[in-house]
């Protein structure tokens, strides 16, 4: 049953190892002599590495920005909850419900006016904003579990809050920070809406590259599959390792 469900991915992988003729053979071939030529062809024709590099840069860049903003905020919310903390968290959650299409036009125009259309910087900033609510929520739920006494004691030892964050919160919350970052990278990597709409030749990510194969000439199945495998494999493997964190992050800490 698991295999049946997994089959489309397996099939994609198999197809990527076929020649174009084998890929559309009828009946479909399950056994064949594998070839790796698609992978090399892809690099030559559509510059896979450039897109991959864009994906890496925007995912990690966006994650870094989001983390830099979120760690102090989540720390403050978790250790010194005020009257507004609850409302603030809910408000952040609600921004997630804002449909991206609703603000497509303004964002497009702003980015255009700033001359940042088709740049990695613009995409990274947007990724950061899109994921910020999830990142804050997830960090908040991790930081809340650091015992209050430890934080309290360190606050007496370290006079400055910056030191407390650096020497106590970050080391203790390291697991939480790492898995939050991981989740954020996964989400950025797979993001398609903004990548397709705001990038072209220069800053196109893998998601945009794959989308460009949707045109009729995309009937080169083996090559499409090769790109897809390369685009998905790293994230799928990452995903396998962070299932638990994923659940916690995507449910805003409600299911652990």
């Amino acid at each position: 049953m698991g295999l049946v469900y997994f089959f489309p991915i397996l099939w994609m992988f198999l197809t990527s190892l076929k020649t174009e003729l084998q890929a559309i053979a009828i009946p479909p071939l399950l056994f064949f002599e594998p070839t790796f030529e698609n992978f090399t062809l892809i690099q030559e024709r559509s510059d896979y590495f450039k897109h991959a590099l864009n994906s890496v840069a925007t995912s990690f860049g966006g994650t870094a920005i989001a983390m830099a903003l979120a760690i102090p905020a989540a720390y403050a919310m978790a250790t010194a909850p005020g009257r507004w903390t609850k409302d603030l968290l809910l408000w952040m959650l609600s921004t997630k419900m804002l449909p991206a299409v609703g603000v497509l036009m303004p964002i497009y125009l702003i980015v255009q006016k700033l001359g940042l259309l088709d740049t990695r910087l613009a995409l990274a900033v947007i990724f950061a904003m899109v994921n910020l609510p999830i990142v804050v929520w997830m960090l908040f739920s991790y930081f809340r579990e650091i015992p209050a006494e430890v934080v309290e004691a360190s606050r007496i030892d370290c006079r400055r809050t910056r030191d407390t964050i650096r020497h106590v919160v970050v080391p203790l919350g390291w697991g939480g920070i790492a898995s939050t970052a991981l989740l954020s990278v996964v989400l950025c990597w797979n993001e398609a809406f903004w990548s397709i709409n705001l990038t072209a030749a220069d800053a196109g990510t893998l998601a945009a590259l794959v989308a460009s194969f949707s045109s009729p000439e995309g009937l080169f199945w083996a090559k499409v599959s090769a790109v897809s495998v390369l685009a998905c494999a790293p994230i799928m493997v990452l995903g396998w390792f962070c299932q638990k964190q994923l659940v916690q992050g995507l449910t805003f800490g409600a299911v652990k």
Binding site: Y5, F6, P8, I9, V186, W189, N190, A192, I196, L206, A207, A208, V210, A211, S214, S228, A231, C232, I235, M236, L238, G239, W240
Partner: peptide
């Protein structure tokens, strides 16, 4: 696994 596949 399918959940980690890019939508495109």
């Amino acid at each position: 696994s399918p959940f980690f596949i890019m939508p495109t």
